[in-house]
Write a protein that binds this DNA or RNA. Structure first.
Length: 589
RNA sequence: GCCAAUGUGGCUCAGGGGUAGAGCAAUUCACUCGUAAUGAAUAGGCCGUGGGUUCGAUUCCCACCAUUGGCUCCA
């Protein structure tokens, strides 16, 4: 042990910077391992990095891990912090590093070290009695970690492979101040309160039942939401020159063999047989779309041909992956296939990108773009893949949007541009995607007659904007915390008669508003006004309409808006027709 | 699929080897009420499913199913 590398220190004051946080959390991860080793010397360490929010560390405990253990480790961490251990960094040869880990029976660390080139020096970070090889950087003293909380325990495969043993991963978060931890935990709780599964139940939007894991049921209010999204989608797509088709939900196995899905995706397809013929429920809409294309002859004059399909697809996702509407086994895809000539590729891709931008912007979503390249198990030639990737790259660079490259994550038939939206607790979900596909047109021998009178093969792209409309609804629920904008709200206004005496007026008003196109509900309960207000608030209804003596006399409503706090209510009497206009205005916004 | 936890009235949860309890919701009655919970009464449960242990299981054990948190996967 030689020197303390001052240039790699990051102090508490740097917690605001990204690197500073990373160093802080990375040291916290080491602290976690240190606590574990003090309590359970037999436990073996895997790896423990800083992540976007906090840190984790993987351990092989060799015994059944419980919440009590987690508590004990957290307490031990707090104890160690008080020791004010200084971080020391030094480097050793590979063999020394290996010997150090071997002595401590750290087999996972030994495996990692053995893969490092022989002549490389390996840096170690040491805090008191604990040292581990690590590239750093770290903070200079563990005492900066004033607040630490271990959040959860989960299984995680060693080195991320299903074939390896499963280690126990402990997730934690830490801060230089206790108040920051409190703030963070509060945020977590708020995010939890927006969970689409919880709100979906409370607001009677949808449900998942034991009888159909991953297969969502929609209640009347949820379907209003869904249908509104679909109406909006149809309006914009029609404007953009898309035509809509519908293809069967189930088709013969031979079709899936032809498309390549049978070879590449069979485990995830639901199958059945009818009259000794095998069928599969569609996991994607494209093969059906191919048959529609082939059902007649096409000319270059029809191009670009934008053919959309709102198709329900089913995918047999592994049980452990299901997550409410975000990851389901059946969902409605807002698919479209665009058939075109090579010289139309760029403008079509950019057209879809603009469309996606318009959609997401309408909901106020920020998104990130990823370009996914050729995966291992793919079909097609290198030239086709190179050309397709180059086209997507040129298109995305042409519109000047930032993007990340996701190597090897493309579809088996082509590369794709993915559009990711963040949910309320920071998880990213893929929604839109644009995929270039040279394979299906070949496999299905798609053709068009060109200017030269000869047959040519069209280029095709797949694209979705919502992706899964169901997933999009899940994200919307969390994004708005159930307070949907007026145009989406299942119930736009709730009428609250001050007492039973005004129930009749309430009924008449409800019909009047309904006829005017307002989605309205009447509270018929025999409760006090305060109670009804509270109930309407909890329903997240945009407008609460109180009606009593005055309103009945004036043919008016007293409007109370959902969004304001109790002390700053926007309450005002308004003529019924004026209120209708207001709702209409907000509905087309 | 893997690791771990959980599963008790419509919802949120307490309980615990002798066949269950609260709050909210529901229903009924009284009150007729002006901007975040009026009061009273009633009804509602095969304690996830199937086995086992036991005189007796909702409680203990095993398996399965579902859910939750992650991991792997997401064409």
């Amino acid at each position: 042990m030689k020197i303390l590398l001052n240039d790699q220190q990051v102090h508490e004051a740097d917690f605001e910077s990204k690197e500073g946080k990373k160093a802080f959390w990375h040291t916290s991860a080491h602290l976690l391992a240190q606590a574990v080793k003090r309590l359970y010397p037999e436990a073996k360490c895997g790896i423990g990095p800083a992540i976007e929010n906090g840190f984790y560390y993987d351990f092989d405990f060799g015994f059944q891990f419980s919440d009590e253990h987690l508590q004990a480790i957290e307490e031990k961490m707090k104890e160690i912090v008080k020791e004010s251990l200084i971080l020391q960094v030094y480097d050793v040869s590979k063999s020394e590093a290996y010997a150090y880990m071997e002595e401590r029976n750290e087999s996972y660390k030994m495996e990692l070290i053995s893969e490092i080139p022989d002549d490389e020096r390996i840096s170690f970070y040491k805090q008191g009695d604990y040292a581990e090889f690590c590239a750093g950087p770290h903070i200079s003293n563990v005492s900066f970690i004033k607040a630490v909380k271990l959040l959860s325990v989960a299984g995680a495969y060693w080195r991320g492979s299903e074939k390896n043993p499963m280690l126990t991963r402990i997730y934690g978060i830490s801060f230089p101040k206790a108040s920051m931890l409190e703030e963070y935990l509060k945020q977590l709780e708020e995010a939890k309160a927006r969970d689409h599964r919880k709100l979906g139940k409370e607001l009677e939007l949808f449900a998942l039942m034991e009888e159909g894991p991953g297969l969502p049921f929609y209640f009347p209010k949820g379907l209003i939401l869904k249908n509104n999204l679909i109406d909006y989608w149809r309006k914009i797509h029609s404007r953009e020159g898309y035509e809509e088709i519908s293809t069967p939900i189930m088709l013969m196995r031979t079709l899936w063999e032809k498309s390549g899905h049978w070879d590449h995706y069979r485990e995830n397809m639901y199958t059945t047989s009818v009259d000794d013929t095998d069928y599969a429920i569609k996991p994607m809409n494209c093969p059906g779309g191919m048959l529609v294309y082939k059902s007649k002859q096409h000319s270059y004059k029809e191009f670009p041909m934008r053919v959309a399909e709102l198709g329900i697809v089913h995918r047999a996702e592994k049980s452990g992956t299901l997550h409410g509407l975000m990851r389901a086994r059946s969902f409605l895809q807002d698919d479209a296939h665009i058939f075109m000539r090579e010289d139309q590729v760029m403008s079509e891709i950019q057209g879809v990108m603009r469309l996606i931008d318009e959609f997401y912007d309408r909901f106020g979503f920020k998104y990130e773009i990823e370009l996914s390249t050729r995966p291992e198990n793919s079909i097609g030639s290198d030239e086709e893949w190179d050309l397709a990737i180059a086209s997507l790259k040129a298109a995305v660079e042409g519109v000047g949007k930032p993007y990340a490259i996701n190597e090897g994550d493309g579809a088996f038939y082509g590369p794709k541009l993915d559009f990711h939206i963040r949910d309320s607790i920071g998880r990213m979900w893929q929604c839109g995607t644009i995929q270039l596909d040279f394979q299906l047109p070949q496999r299905f021998e798609l053709e068009y007659i060109g200017e030269d009178g000869e047959k040519h093969r069209p280029i095709m792209l797949h694209r979705v904007v919502f992706g899964s409309i169901d997933r999009f609804i899940g994200i919307l629920i969390e994004h708005y915390a159930g307070k949907f904008p007026v145009w989406l709200s299942p119930v736009q206004a709730k009428i609250l008669p001050v007492s039973d005496k005004y129930l009749e007026y309430g009924k008449a008003l409800a019909s009047e508003l309904r006829e005017a196109g307002v989605r309205v509900e009447l509270d018929k309960s025999d409760e006090k006004l305060g109670y009804k207000i509270r109930a309407a608030k909890m329903d997240r209804v945009p407008y609460i309409l109180v009606v009593g003596e005055k309103e009945m006399a004036n043919h008016s409503v007293s409007v109370r808006s959902r969004d304001l706090e109790p002390d700053k209510q926007e309450i005002g009497e308004m003529a019924v027709m004026k209120f209708v206009e207001r709702v209409r205005e907000e509905s087309v916004k």
